[in-house]
């Protein structure tokens, strides 16, 4: 292990680190929105839309991100849709993550007691109001563990962006290895970088989960 090699690479890795963080953040937020939306649509069995979203969730969950990205990046231009690698990456991650989050939310929503729904209905709420005031807030607390696992999963999935040459952490490490042949050093920095991103996230999510479970919510 040559420390000089490592310290020289740090500025480049810092750049990549920022990009990984940013891509993760956008991907996770987008996935949460798409996931919540598609789960609610499935929950309330909105005609046509709910079948469409079910098909989407199954397709996205049961195929690898890599092939989804290849499709977006290499196949879409053939039918006239050309997007930058980063755009493809984000769309791909949200496509995949939205489906995972939808499953997470659905698990939580299905744990909301039928009596709670009945109470909401008896108070005259429509589906939108039921979703907003009853199903979502209570189901969200129950979904937390699954959503947290998905957050970690999605951050790790950004490593696959390396295959379409987005200069995030993994891609940067591979580039450097290709150029300078110092695999031990660069792989070491790469693993440490993922640890720096993920350890605080894991701790934070654990804390949040406990807060939601024992805090003001669900008795």
């Amino acid at each position: 292990m040559n420390w000089q090699v490592i310290s020289h690479s740090l500025p480049i890795f810092a750049q990549a680190f920022k990009l990984t963080l940013w891509l993760s953040l956008v991907g996770i937020l987008g996935s949460l929105i798409v996931g919540a939306l598609s789960s609610l649509i499935q929950y309330f069995k909105v005609p046509i839309l709910s079948q469409l979203f079910t098909a989407y969730v199954e397709l996205a969950r049961n195929t690898p991100l890599l092939i989804q990205l290849f499709f977006l990046y290499y196949a879409f231009p053939v039918i006239g849709l050309k997007m930058s690698a980063t755009t493809c990456g984000i769309i791909g991650l949200i496509f995949l993550g939205g489906a995972y989050m939808a499953e997470g939310f659905t698990g939580g929503f299905s744990g909301v007691n039928q009596t709670q729904i009945d109470n909401g209905k008896a108070l005259g709420m429509n589906n939108l109001q039921l979703a907003r005031y009853v199903v979502f807030p209570q189901g969200f607390a129950l979904s937390m563990p699954a959503l947290a696992a998905n957050v970690i999963f999605l951050i790790k999935e950004t490593s696959i962006f390396s295959v379409i040459a987005i200069p995030e952490l993994t891609n940067t490490a591979l580039d450097l290895i290709g150029m300078y042949y110092r695999s031990n050093e660069y792989l070491f920095v790469l693993v440490v970088a993922y640890a720096i991103v993920l350890i605080p996230v894991i701790l934070l999510l654990n804390l949040l989960e406990r807060r939601v479970r024992y805090g003001t919510f669900g008795d």
Binding site: I160, S162, T170, S183, N184, L187, L198
Partner: peptide, 20 residues
């Protein structure tokens, strides 16, 4: 293994086994 992405695991084995 929770922290390191699978693609990185693959490269760890791929580079470290033969070289080190």
């Amino acid at each position: 293994f929770r922290i390191v992405p699978t693609i990185v695991l693959l490269y760890l084995v791929y580079y470290i086994l033969p070289r080190s």
